[in-house]
Simulated assay, not measured.
Amino acid sequence: MARRYWRSDRPYDYSFDTSLENQRLQDLWEQELRKLEEWWAFLDSLRKELPGLTIGDATATPDACFRCAAYSPRTSEPERPTRFIVVGCVSILAPVYTLYGVEYASSDIKRRKTRVYFEPLPSDMRQTAEVIARRIEATFTVTALPREIAETPIPLFVEPLKPPQTTLFHAFFTSEPDRLP
Protein backbone atom coordinates (compact mmCIF):
# COMPACT_ATOMS: atom_id res chain seq x y z
CA MET A 1 0.00 0.00 0.00
CA ALA A 2 2.74 2.51 0.94
CA ARG A 3 4.46 1.89 -2.40
CA ARG A 4 1.53 3.60 -4.19
CA TYR A 5 2.42 6.88 -2.46
CA TRP A 6 6.19 6.76 -1.88
CA ARG A 7 8.96 6.02 -4.38
CA SER A 8 11.74 3.46 -4.16
CA ASP A 9 14.12 5.68 -6.13
CA ARG A 10 14.88 9.40 -6.45
CA PRO A 11 14.52 10.41 -10.11
CA TYR A 12 12.47 13.51 -9.24
CA ASP A 13 15.08 15.20 -7.06
CA TYR A 14 15.84 18.69 -8.37
CA SER A 15 13.03 18.44 -10.92
CA PHE A 16 9.93 20.56 -11.40
CA ASP A 17 7.98 17.44 -12.35
CA THR A 18 6.03 15.52 -9.75
CA SER A 19 6.09 11.77 -9.51
CA LEU A 20 3.02 9.62 -10.01
CA GLU A 21 3.30 8.57 -6.34
CA ASN A 22 3.41 12.17 -5.14
CA GLN A 23 0.44 13.05 -7.31
CA ARG A 24 -1.50 10.14 -5.82
CA LEU A 25 -0.72 11.39 -2.31
CA GLN A 26 -1.82 14.93 -3.21
CA ASP A 27 -5.03 13.59 -4.76
CA LEU A 28 -5.71 11.49 -1.66
CA TRP A 29 -5.18 14.55 0.56
CA GLU A 30 -7.70 16.50 -1.54
CA GLN A 31 -10.21 13.71 -0.96
CA GLU A 32 -9.43 13.39 2.77
CA LEU A 33 -9.64 17.14 3.39
CA ARG A 34 -13.34 16.88 2.59
CA LYS A 35 -13.60 15.18 5.99
CA LEU A 36 -12.13 18.18 7.79
CA GLU A 37 -15.34 18.94 9.71
CA GLU A 38 -15.18 15.47 11.27
CA TRP A 39 -11.54 16.15 12.26
CA TRP A 40 -12.43 19.52 13.87
CA ALA A 41 -15.29 17.84 15.79
CA PHE A 42 -12.84 15.19 17.00
CA LEU A 43 -10.46 17.91 18.27
CA ASP A 44 -13.36 19.64 20.05
CA SER A 45 -14.27 16.37 21.78
CA LEU A 46 -10.66 15.99 22.94
CA ARG A 47 -10.69 19.52 24.36
CA LYS A 48 -13.71 18.56 26.48
CA GLU A 49 -12.12 15.32 27.70
CA LEU A 50 -8.68 16.83 28.38
CA PRO A 51 -9.48 20.27 29.81
CA GLY A 52 -6.09 20.78 31.47
CA LEU A 53 -4.18 20.39 28.20
CA THR A 54 -3.92 22.50 25.10
CA ILE A 55 -5.24 20.51 22.12
CA GLY A 56 -4.10 21.43 18.64
CA ASP A 57 -4.08 20.25 15.07
CA ALA A 58 -0.60 19.16 14.01
CA THR A 59 -1.55 17.91 10.53
CA ALA A 60 1.03 18.77 7.89
CA THR A 61 1.71 17.59 4.39
CA PRO A 62 3.58 15.71 2.99
CA ASP A 63 2.78 13.57 6.02
CA ALA A 64 0.24 10.84 5.38
CA CYS A 65 -1.93 11.40 8.43
CA PHE A 66 -4.10 13.73 10.40
CA ARG A 67 -2.24 14.56 13.64
CA CYS A 68 -3.54 15.95 16.89
CA ALA A 69 -1.30 17.18 19.69
CA ALA A 70 -2.08 17.43 23.40
CA TYR A 71 0.37 19.83 25.06
CA SER A 72 1.04 19.62 28.79
CA PRO A 73 0.51 22.86 30.71
CA ARG A 74 3.36 25.25 31.43
CA THR A 75 4.66 24.99 34.94
CA SER A 76 6.96 27.15 37.03
CA GLU A 77 7.99 24.21 39.20
CA PRO A 78 11.80 23.95 39.14
CA GLU A 79 11.64 20.17 39.72
CA ARG A 80 9.65 19.81 36.46
CA PRO A 81 11.68 21.61 33.78
CA THR A 82 10.25 19.58 30.90
CA ARG A 83 6.92 19.51 29.12
CA PHE A 84 5.35 16.87 26.94
CA ILE A 85 3.17 16.50 23.88
CA VAL A 86 1.10 13.39 23.20
CA VAL A 87 0.46 13.01 19.48
CA GLY A 88 -2.31 10.96 17.88
CA CYS A 89 -1.96 10.11 14.18
CA VAL A 90 -4.73 8.80 11.92
CA SER A 91 -3.30 7.55 8.62
CA ILE A 92 -4.92 8.46 5.32
CA LEU A 93 -3.21 5.51 3.59
CA ALA A 94 -4.57 2.67 5.72
CA PRO A 95 -7.21 2.27 8.46
CA VAL A 96 -4.62 2.54 11.26
CA TYR A 97 -3.56 5.01 13.92
CA THR A 98 -0.65 5.42 16.29
CA LEU A 99 0.31 7.47 19.32
CA TYR A 100 3.66 8.79 20.41
CA GLY A 101 5.03 11.30 22.87
CA VAL A 102 7.51 14.14 22.67
CA GLU A 103 9.28 15.47 25.73
CA TYR A 104 11.20 18.74 25.64
CA ALA A 105 12.76 21.41 27.78
CA SER A 106 10.68 24.54 27.56
CA SER A 107 12.00 28.01 26.99
CA ASP A 108 10.34 31.21 25.89
CA ILE A 109 12.03 31.04 22.51
CA LYS A 110 12.01 27.39 21.39
CA ARG A 111 11.98 23.76 22.43
CA ARG A 112 15.27 22.24 23.51
CA LYS A 113 16.40 18.68 24.21
CA THR A 114 13.53 17.13 22.27
CA ARG A 115 13.03 13.40 22.74
CA VAL A 116 10.45 11.21 20.95
CA TYR A 117 8.87 8.24 22.78
CA PHE A 118 6.96 5.34 21.35
CA GLU A 119 5.26 2.53 23.25
CA PRO A 120 5.53 2.24 26.13
CA LEU A 121 5.09 5.94 26.82
CA PRO A 122 6.43 7.52 30.02
CA SER A 123 3.97 7.41 32.91
CA ASP A 124 3.08 11.13 32.76
CA MET A 125 1.90 10.71 29.15
CA ARG A 126 -0.10 7.48 29.52
CA GLN A 127 -3.42 8.82 30.76
CA THR A 128 -3.53 11.42 27.99
CA ALA A 129 -2.59 8.77 25.42
CA GLU A 130 -5.38 6.48 26.64
CA VAL A 131 -7.97 9.23 26.22
CA ILE A 132 -6.72 10.10 22.73
CA ALA A 133 -6.65 6.43 21.68
CA ARG A 134 -10.16 5.83 22.99
CA ARG A 135 -11.49 8.94 21.21
CA ILE A 136 -9.72 8.04 17.91
CA GLU A 137 -11.20 4.54 17.98
CA ALA A 138 -14.67 5.87 18.79
CA THR A 139 -14.59 8.49 16.03
CA PHE A 140 -12.76 6.84 13.13
CA THR A 141 -12.87 3.29 11.81
CA VAL A 142 -9.21 2.55 12.56
CA THR A 143 -7.12 0.24 14.71
CA ALA A 144 -3.81 0.81 16.42
CA LEU A 145 -0.81 -0.18 14.32
CA PRO A 146 1.35 -2.39 16.59
CA ARG A 147 4.77 -0.88 17.24
CA GLU A 148 6.60 -3.99 15.99
CA ILE A 149 4.84 -3.64 12.62
CA ALA A 150 5.33 0.14 12.51
CA GLU A 151 9.08 -0.42 12.91
CA THR A 152 9.25 -2.64 9.81
CA PRO A 153 11.90 -1.23 7.45
CA ILE A 154 10.67 -0.41 3.94
CA PRO A 155 12.71 0.36 0.80
CA LEU A 156 10.96 3.68 0.11
CA PHE A 157 11.94 7.35 0.24
CA VAL A 158 9.77 9.28 2.68
CA GLU A 159 11.43 12.68 2.70
CA PRO A 160 13.73 13.49 4.31
CA LEU A 161 14.38 9.82 5.13
CA LYS A 162 15.76 7.24 2.77
CA PRO A 163 16.27 3.49 3.00
CA PRO A 164 17.34 1.78 5.21
CA GLN A 165 16.11 4.31 7.85
CA THR A 166 12.54 4.40 6.48
CA THR A 167 9.85 2.36 8.26
CA LEU A 168 6.12 1.79 7.90
CA PHE A 169 5.63 4.38 10.65
CA HIS A 170 7.23 7.02 8.43
CA ALA A 171 5.20 6.03 5.36
CA PHE A 172 1.81 5.78 7.12
CA PHE A 173 2.25 8.73 9.48
CA THR A 174 5.22 11.12 9.50
CA SER A 175 8.91 11.09 8.75
CA GLU A 176 9.56 13.85 11.30
CA PRO A 177 7.65 13.02 14.50
CA ASP A 178 9.42 15.70 16.52
CA ARG A 179 8.36 18.55 14.19
CA LEU A 180 5.26 19.97 15.80
CA PRO A 181 3.74 23.43 15.97
Rank of each mutant, 00 (worst) to 15 (best):
T98S: 12
V116C: 09
L121S: 04
D13Q: 09
T139K: 04
A144D: 07
Y104G: 03
F84C: 12
T139I: 02
T167H: 02
G52K: 08
T54E: 13
R74V: 12
F84Y: 15
S106D: 12
T139H: 02
P73C: 05
M1L: 14
L50F: 12
R74C: 04
K162R: 15
T59G: 02
D17S: 13
L145C: 09
K110F: 10
S107N: 11
L33I: 10
A58R: 04
R112T: 14
S106P: 01
E103Q: 13
V102Y: 03
R3A: 12
E38D: 09
Y71N: 02
E30C: 13
W40K: 15
S45G: 13
P95G: 03
D57H: 05
E137Q: 15
S123P: 04
G56S: 14
T141G: 06
L28D: 05
T54D: 09
E130C: 11
L25Y: 02
S91L: 06
R134E: 10
R126G: 06
P11T: 07
S72C: 06
A2G: 15
L53C: 08
F42T: 01
N22I: 03
L46K: 02
P177C: 05
Y97P: 00
T143H: 09
L99R: 01
I132E: 00
D13P: 00
F172T: 00
F118M: 07
P155L: 06
S76N: 14
L156C: 09
R179H: 07
P160A: 08
F16E: 05
